[in-house]
Write a protein that binds this DNA or RNA. Structure first.
Lengths: 154, 154
DNA sequence: GTCGTTCTTGCGAGGCTATGCAATAACAAC
DNA sequence: GTTGTTATTGCATAGCCTCGCAAGAACGAC
């Protein structure tokens, strides 16, 4: 069933410990959570809450939206996903967050990519020094226009 | 770090031309738009869509939400407001945008303040130089924690 | 003032996300 | 296997925002 796509060093294996991670915290392993984890294990990069709900429903039509969102909250606490908001304000979850990063999104075409701590360092340090504000890079969103896109006429 | 922007030098006068601005574009001056403009004229800094709806309803209980949101879209096209998304993903409108600025929001207490072009210059220039990406400062959101707040336990 | 054009509104419906609550299922202990 | 505890689920509901559509209002022309 699994294709030969080792991709990240973690891969599906990284999810194997999820059940234990839940147990250790006195949380439970349920069929619903299993399904959600399965779907996430096959996802790399970003996924919105709505997308996840949809994919889960494709496998089990009885999937309940609120359960998915609540599970996502739990997984975030366990560090399996991290959420932020896209340029359109929608929830966006990062699967297997290897390195926390900010998001850059084109307001024209919707293209998105990442920004690392290194890229943002000057600004992050400035805010920390000036205001004592600790930036959470995963919650940084930078909107703008990529080379091919023009700002909307005004 | 103030939570809102002080009253602008423009004040109500800046809104006086709104009716003409609409006319010039073949758009119409309606009682609903007048109400919304009135409320906005008394607002400085930020306001969320929901807040605006609420304030309009306080003056005219018959206010319809979708009308407010649509008017906001029109006003944005005319340059009277500018929208972005708060740390929680909610819509947020900037009234009388004098200087475009980015938003910094505390994920703990919700406090928010502004970041100017000057503050972000290094990063903006880097993105422009490296990727040809033109940052829209009004669509930049920086989440993190202010001195009094701690990241959620994990 | 009347008329016609077309922009707006009101309204209903729907999508995404969050939350409260009672019923249920997981798990540990026996 | 049974039981008790309590985390979870399912469901209903609600809030915010968007969209389609038909009825209505604003504006310009006469």
């Amino acid at each position: 069933m699994s294709t030969s796509t080792p991709a990240s060093p973690g891969g599906k294996a990284a999810w194997a410990g999820a059940r234990e991670a839940l147990r250790e915290r006195g949380l439970r392993w349920t069929p619903q959570r299993r399904l959600i984890l399965d779907v996430l294990a096959e996802t790399s990069g970003h996924i919105t809450g709505a997308e996840l709900v949809e994919r889960c429903r494709a496998r089990d039509a009885a999937t309940i939206g609120s359960t998915v969102y609540r599970t996502l909250d739990v997984l975030e606490e366990l560090g399996y996903v991290r959420h932020s908001h896209g340029a359109d304000g929608r929830e966006e979850y990062h699967v297997l967050p290897l390195a926390e990063h900010a998001h850059i999104g084109c307001l024209g075409c919707g293209a998105a990519w990442d920004l690392t701590w290194e890229d943002a360092r000057e600004l992050v340090e400035r805010l920390e020094a000036r205001n004592g504000f600790r930036v959470a890079l995963g919650h940084v969103m930078i909107g703008g226009y990529c080379p091919g896109c023009e700002p909307a006429e005004r």
